[in-house]
Simulated assay, not measured.
Amino acid sequence: MAAPKKKTGLISHGIASQNRKGRFNYTILETVEAGIVLKGPEVKSLRAGRAQIAEAYAGERNGEVWLFNSYIPEYQGGVLSRFDSRAPRKLLLHKKQVEKLLGAVARAGVTLVPLDIHFNDRGLAKLTLGLGEGRKTVDKRHAIAERDWQRDKARLIRNKGRDD
Rank of each mutant, 00 (worst) to 15 (best):
E99T: 13
W149H: 12
G59Q: 11
A54M: 03
E64A: 11
D116A: 11
E55I: 00
G35S: 06
P114K: 09
G14M: 14
R47Y: 06
V110D: 06
G78V: 00
K153W: 06
W149D: 08
E74R: 09
L127E: 03
R23I: 06
G63W: 04
D139T: 13
R107W: 07
R141G: 09
T111W: 05
V110N: 11
V65I: 15
L129C: 03
G103C: 11
T128H: 04
I72D: 01
E99H: 08
D116F: 09
A58M: 03
A108S: 06
S70H: 00
I53Q: 01
R20K: 14
I157D: 14
F83R: 02
T27F: 12
G103K: 12
A58T: 08
I117G: 00
P114L: 08
I53R: 01
L92I: 14
S45M: 10
Q18T: 07
R23H: 05
H118W: 05
L129A: 00
G123P: 11
I157Q: 10
L101H: 05
I157A: 10
N120G: 05
P4D: 13
N159W: 03
R50E: 12
V37L: 08
S17H: 03
A106N: 12
R47S: 02
G59L: 08
R47P: 05
H94D: 11
V113E: 08
V37K: 09
H94L: 12
D164S: 10
A87T: 09
V79Y: 05
G134Y: 02
P114W: 08
K100N: 11
Y57F: 15
F119T: 04
P73N: 11
S81E: 11
V37T: 13
G77P: 07
I11D: 09
N69T: 13
K6A: 10
H13A: 10
L10G: 00
G109A: 04
V113D: 07
A56P: 00
I53L: 12
G134L: 08
I28P: 05
D148F: 03
D164A: 12
V32W: 02
G134T: 14
D121E: 15
K95W: 01
D121Y: 13
Y26S: 01
L91S: 01
P41N: 14
E42V: 04
K7V: 14
R20D: 10
M1C: 04
R147M: 07
L124E: 13
E55H: 15
K5W: 01
I72V: 13
D152N: 05
L101S: 04
K5G: 01
R147L: 04
I117V: 15
K7Q: 15
S81Y: 05
A2V: 07
